[in-house]
Design a protein around this nucleic acid. Sequence first.
DNA 1: TAGATTGTTAATCGATTAACAATC
DNA 2: TAGATTGTTAATCGATTAACAATC
Lengths: 213, 213
Amino acid sequence: MILEIMQRAEKRIPHIVISRLPVYLRALRLMETQGKPYTSSQELAAWLGCTPAQIRKDLSHFGEFGKQGTGYSVNGLQKHLRNILHLNSEWPVIVVGTGHIGSAIANYTGFAERGFRVVAVFDNDPIKIGSQVGQFVVRDVAEVAAFVSEQPIRHAMLSVPADAAQSVADLLIKNGINAILNYAPVHLTCPPSVQVEYIDPVLHLQVMTYSVG
Amino acid sequence: MILEIMQRAEKRIPHIVISRLPVYLRALRLMETQGKPYTSSQELAAWLGCTPAQIRKDLSHFGEFGKQGTGYSVNGLQKHLRNILHLNSEWPVIVVGTGHIGSAIANYTGFAERGFRVVAVFDNDPIKIGSQVGQFVVRDVAEVAAFVSEQPIRHAMLSVPADAAQSVADLLIKNGINAILNYAPVHLTCPPSVQVEYIDPVLHLQVMTYSVG
DNA sequence: TAGATTGTTAATCGATTAACAATC
DNA sequence: TAGATTGTTAATCGATTAACAATC
């Protein structure tokens, strides 16, 4: 039993599997608001447009969360997924860059609802520093070091212009940030200990024009 | 020769290949601003953190765009990619939903810079209809049918609350929209002729906490 | 018990990569 | 010519899926 757990822990779980867990979690939350106590891999798959086998296979990397004949407890599986993803406590996040995107991010309430609290907003433009963005006073990006050393912040959302993104990312990493959600439309080159995820809406539109056009 | 082209056209190109073309295009644009006339699969791969073989393989689905010994013309390859993706003319896009995200999208200049023009903004909230969002007057979503029939609009960005997303998507599809970029944190069930892409920043943050946490 | 659904195995399917002849 | 890099092939690698014994 303990051996099994250890063996499981040794295996490196594919990123593609990890990336689907939050999607399952999102669907389970929705099921819960609809008052659904149990679900099955089949039902979940129908909601998500994937196969039941994929869901069961994905979950099997982490343990056995279901019951034959019954399926999964909606609430129970959520708890397991939150444990796996380390979403039990709220995570602080900083926003760097206060253009249109940065301001929108800073004011978006959807983060706090799902476990991430924007705690500060930074920019390097002297005109913007000290100004108000939503409930935040924009801080000088030069103060990131001091700010991050005060509290253990690991996540940053990066919304600076493309040509500044790499150097700002380097600065953030130097100061202890190791998870960057990059809204700037450029690839970032970072050490392997740092995780980077990308959001660029134009990419999605362009992909769709391939078959629409 | 003609036979080869026909054979190529018959093959169904994997979505994952299509999804990388805009990334290549984005890098080539950046190279061009830096005054670089030529590049190679090796250099491009180094910029993007992928392998040179992958880039060559991806491009080989569509034709032969490089020269042995020399590589690719930065400008020439951009043109080929724009042709493939149907990005030669500007595409009109509508925004549906004018919360924080919708407003930010409507005001974001990054779309027009890369070939997509936001032409109208819709909502179903009577309080919002008629109000100003950036340069747009918010229209009643009930007018989508009339608006879309006037000009051939295929793309919509959907930023309504999660529980309204499916029904609004259905309405858009009924009126001729067949590419939806969905910002609402729910899976949409749509006919196969309709393409849906998803953006949910929280998903990315949650994925990163798996290993950061 | 009978029906349902799990977790897992093995087969299938598809994507990535290394290697190299062709050639600029 | 010599060096560099392509496009393509074949091998490898990894992900998805179907099927089913186990069992609630």
